[in-house]
Design a protein around this nucleic acid. Structure first.
Length: 593
DNA sequence: CTGGGGATGGGGCCC
DNA sequence: TGGGCCCCATCCCCA
């Protein structure tokens, strides 16, 4: 699901938990044993604090204004600006390298320092500082170029990109081209200068993860040499050399996250805004020069995750933004790798990236269709009732209501349906099959979405915090209860299992994909190792992921929902595979080895 | 809270 | 490359 969905759903006035989660700048969470669980058990409770990030930034800004705890002074042409080294290191590649170098790359400290930045205009420096603390860049348009230059010098890429967008620079100058080679970092474009974007639901989860789940590794960049307390202004050349001069590896690309975003997925949305501001997303795409240089193909060793990431356009965000929707080299590399490895089938259609939501749209000709979800354009109008649709095929289906055509008759009853999937749902009623069972209360449903809805209720969700029986956490799975239903307390066991596996979706899947031995407990073998691994995985989860923990929990519940127990797969292997993919991607840790 | 119908958007396949 | 058609997942709405 994408922000397109978010917008579309918002237009419909709907609301979705995932979307709400996505739009919230959620930063904090609480690791659970101390919170709600007794130590040594399955106490992993994620408690999101959506306002934390905003408050944190606000407080930091207050401190900056009052000079509290400021340990860095930036000067420019006689102007002095107090700030915090940590903040500047977080927002600026230059400062990050600077401080990392002088501190030996590890511990903090370093004392108070003054950094002279005469190469950055005072107004621009002030604006950049404001940006660092407010995520909003407020500048007069006349100062745009100064800010652009300052952002480039300091390695605040999202601001630089946003300024370039605003200035309408379709391409980089020759000088910039030299500095930013084809592999110039484009992970997140846009910055925060424009007003806060409207809430977007169901953002591209993969993209969000990629943006937020990685911390910038200073080693990725070539940090400028450490310097004493008074730092010389960074030379443009040295700063331009910050990006690697060789094409970055996918891993490096992933690490090239705009520092300030720090997990806030909003950052990646800006290019779309820009595109919108420029009026006409498609036009925006088309005005891009064709054949823009692309990064070399990703190493064929990239795993499925990497391939997905490439395909999803994260690595190539910028490239796609800067170039027409041509197949990215990474895509092709991924496809080639996939083909070579006998893996996933190569997509028959060229993926294109939506400049608004960054989502990769698979299938030639599908991007215009997708774009209408952003523009709200509904060019297909019902001649009978005037209702408009974004898609012709939807209009055709709609027309069935007027013609009375119901092309999907139930073979068992007189019922006929407009949609094939309605018939599918209906047929499950005839069969009486209720393959979707709640693992907590064991209530069965004929439809998966009904099960999902059921689980979103409180009745089952609240059970997740129940403590498992002593011994259930370690021994049950070794006891090898093959039936899976004969466990002493299936409720608790499944709760524990689901709970723990929320952090190990793929591990949970492995259980199912391997030997179907019924529910197993996550922390069965090496509890500490598993727990440690969970923490590592969580550390790689972005704030939004943490915030999304309840849904992870729920989703994993669904994964397990009684399916593995009886050996059938009513939800379909595809669904499980999809979840498996998401699980792997969400965790971002390869556990197979 | 659940059952059922309908709506919406994305992906695959094909022309 | 664009578009039609279909399927799917997911959501919303209503009874």
């Amino acid at each position: 699901m994408t922000s397109a969905d978010l917008q579309a759903k918002d237009r419909r006035g709907g609301g979705r938990a995932r979307g709400r989660r996505s739009q919230a700048p959620i930063f904090s969470w609480v690791y659970g044993p101390e919170v709600a669980m007794s130590p040594g058990e399955d106490g992993l409770i994620g408690i999101p604090f959506p306002e934390h990030s905003n408050e944190l930034l606000s407080h930091l800004n207050d401190q900056r204004r009052t000079g509290l705890l400021c340990d860095l002074t930036l000067t420019s042409r006689g102007q002095h600006y107090l700030t915090h080294r940590s903040v500047m290191a977080a927002v600026s590649v230059y400062f990050r390298g600077l401080f990392a170098g002088e501190e030996g790359g590890c511990e903090g400290g370093g004392g108070f320092s003054v950094c002279q930045l005469d190469c950055v205009a005072p107004a621009a420096l002030k604006a950049l500082l404001e940006f660092a603390y407010t995520a909003t860049l407020t500048i007069p348009s006349s100062a745009m170029r100064d800010v652009l230059r300052g952002a480039q010098l300091l390695g605040i890429k999202c601001v630089a990109d946003a300024c370039k967008d605003i200035l309408g620079e379709t391409g980089e100058t020759a000088e910039e081209q030299r500095g930013h080679n084809a592999a110039t970092e484009r992970t997140a474009v846009g910055g925060e200068r424009v007003a806060e974007r409207g809430s977007r639901r169901k953002m591209d989860k993969k993209k969000m993860r990629k943006v937020s789940s990685h911390h910038v590794d200073p080693s990725v960049f070539n940090p400028p040499p450490a310097s004493p307390a008074s730092h010389p202004p960074p030379s443009p050349e040295s700063l331009r050399s910050l990006p690697p001069t060789r094409p970055p590896s996918p891993e490096q690309e992933e690490l090239r996250v705009t520092p300030h975003q720090n997990g806030d997925p909003r950052g990646v949305r800006k290019p779309g805004k820009r595109a919108k501001l420029n009026g006409g997303l498609l036009h925006w795409l088309h005005e891009r020069p064709r054949g823009a240089p692309r990064p070399p193909a990703a190493p064929p060793s990239i795993d499925k995750l990497s391939e997905d990431e490439d395909t999803e356009g994260f690595v190539d965000d910028g490239a796609l933004m800067e170039s027409p929707p041509v197949p990215s080299a990474a895509d092709e590399g991924g496809a080639a790798a996939s083909a070579a490895g006998g893996g996933r089938k190569r997509k028959s259609q060229t993926p294109q990236q939506c400049p608004v939501c960054q989502k990769i749209i698979h299938g030639a000709g599908k991007l215009p269709r997708h774009m209408r979800t952003h523009t709200g354009e509904k060019p297909f109008q019902c001649s009978a009732c005037g209702v408009r649709f974004t898609r012709n095929d939807k209009l055709k289906i709609h027309m069935r209501k007027h013609t009375g055509e119901r092309p999907y008759p139930c073979p068992h009853c007189p019922a006929r349906f407009l949609h094939s999937y309605d018939l599918k749902n209906h047929l499950s009623l005839h069969s009486g099959a209720r393959p979707f069972e709640c693992p907590l209360c064991h209530k069965a449903f004929a439809r998966e979405d009904h099960l999902q809805r059921h689980r979103k209720g409180h009745s089952c969700l609240e059970l997740r915090t129940r403590r498992p029986r002593r011994g259930a956490e370690l021994g049950e799975d070794e006891r090898g209860d093959e039936s899976g239903r004969e466990q002493p307390d299936p409720l608790e066991a499944s709760s524990l299992q689901a709970h723990s596996s929320a952090f190990f979706p793929h591990a949970a899947l492995d259980v199912g994909s391997g030997s179907r031995v019924g529910p197993r407990l996550m922390f069965s073998g090496d509890l500490e190792r598993e727990r440690s691994f969970a923490l590592q995985a969580l550390a790689q989860l972005g704030p939004h992921r943490l915030a999304g923990y309840p849904e992870l929990f729920l989703r994993d519940l669904e994964l397990r929902g009684g399916r593995e127990e009886d050996g059938e797969d009513p939800g379909g292997a595809a669904q499980r595979d999809r979840w498996a993919e998401e699980g792997e991607e969400e965790i971002g840790v390869e556990e197979e080895e």
